[in-house]
Nucleic acid binder design. Structure first.
Lengths: 227, 227
DNA sequence: TCAAAAGTGTTGACCCTACACCCATGA
DNA sequence: TCATGGGTGTAGGGTCAACACTTTTGA
């Protein structure tokens, strides 16, 4: 595989290894990602990311980006895909290991920095490099993920109503035709939430608040289609 | 794992970017991967892989490994995961983008080279670096994949009986309890195979041969909410 | 007492599993 | 005619989508 000679031969060019993080959140019934305005290309935005340190694990580097950009720790973080087209950065050869993160909106610290923003995935600004594709891939992955795992709960506040949970699913899937009764039945049968003794005011009957069960089963084995 | 043998001295950190490929095949009712005996660590085996060229895309590099190792082109190939722990190679910092490939057994060229072998995923030899984990991750992915896509057909010969197809599924899933009648019904309903006018001899009634339909739907969208 | 939204029950269609059964072939 | 393995039909239990219904609140 790798022999020492290869190193010498290959030090002629300089690789950079970067991580980029697609940070999702749900705000105002909208699925949003964190983006940063680029200083070197006015009008273009990019995902939070940077070069991986010499002794840093990839996931550590992604987590560091998260901390630096959102000052939040302990976040759902998962590797997405590695992008390495020779042309993806015109300045030099960079391969980027993309991660995606899920962050509940109530954990976002207010931030006066105008170079940072949360943008709807359904209305992205011009993105640098291949970052638009990263967001797209991350969205596809997220949609798969919430259908067989409890990942959607990472985007919810500590306590939430079942309607809010249903709206989270509908916003992520961009499909607002979910049946209320059937959705509730599934959630209850999964024993994944438990009620707390508090209610949220609404325009009608108050809605019971629930929280995620600590002992909940986090994944369900996918149904078989083939065969 | 492997003890540091000859650590290369650097004045600066040099990143290397490699690809490693988990090549699956089905032979003798067994799911196997292609492995190569390491010259530098007798008794240890590794996946086919190598350093990515300066102007080479990641997938191209993986495809090149496939060609060089198996002399086969046009293979199902997909990115798996990127491994970048600082300690994964004791000699220097290497990040490896792992791919997995599916190769029908009848496309394998006979090979006298004793340094190469096909090994059962259920009985791997000692693997170098984190390659055992790569195989494990690839197997997990493969199992998911065949349940919602037609990926399993990539491991079948041009023509096959339904029993052979069923055995492929059972071998990959390591679960031999699939019901014959129900399996056949699903395959037929999926309109994914078509009969050819040939039969295969068996100890009993001859088995009809089928082939994959070119116009078959390759993925089925799972419309299942958690759980 | 009405609008609004929470929350539940029912029903028929569909699908999945288990298992019994028939069919074609060679010895 | 029997063993062997290919190939199919069916009953019943479970799941799901659709939709109507009841409950609770504020105005």
């Amino acid at each position: 595989m790798i022999n020492p000679k290869a190193v010498i031969e290959h030090t002629e060019w300089v690789w950079s290894v970067a991580v980029d993080v697609v940070i999702f959140t749900l705000r105002n019934r909208d699925l949003q990602v964190h983006v940063i305005q680029r200083q070197d290309h006015p009008g273009y935005w990019s995902l939070p990311g940077g070069i991986v340190g010499a002794t840093e694990a990839l996931e550590e580097a992604a987590m560091r980006q998260l901390r630096e950009q959102t000052t939040v720790d302990d976040v759902y973080l998962q590797q997405l895909f590695t992008y390495g087209d020779p042309q993806r950065d015109s300045r030099r050869r960079v391969i980027s290991v993309a991660y995606f993160a899920l962050l509940a909106a109530d954990r976002i610290k207010p931030d006066g920095d105008e170079n940072r923003a949360w943008c709807s995935v359904y209305d992205l600004p011009p993105m640098a490099f291949d970052h638009a594709r990263m967001v797209d891939d991350a969205l596809t992955r997220l949609r798969y993920k919430i259908e067989y795992s409890a990942a959607a709960f990472e985007l919810m506040p500590e306590e939430f109503t079942l309607r809010e949970l249903q709206e989270a699913y509908m916003t992520i899937l961009n499909d607002h035709r979910l049946d209320k009764a059937n959705f509730r039945k599934k959630i209850h049968e999964a024993r994944i939430v438990e009620p707390v003794n508090r209610y949220q005011k609404t325009a009608g009957r108050p809605a019971r608040l629930y929280r995620f069960r600590k002992d909940a089963r986090l994944e369900s084995k996918a149904r078989r289609f083939f065969p």
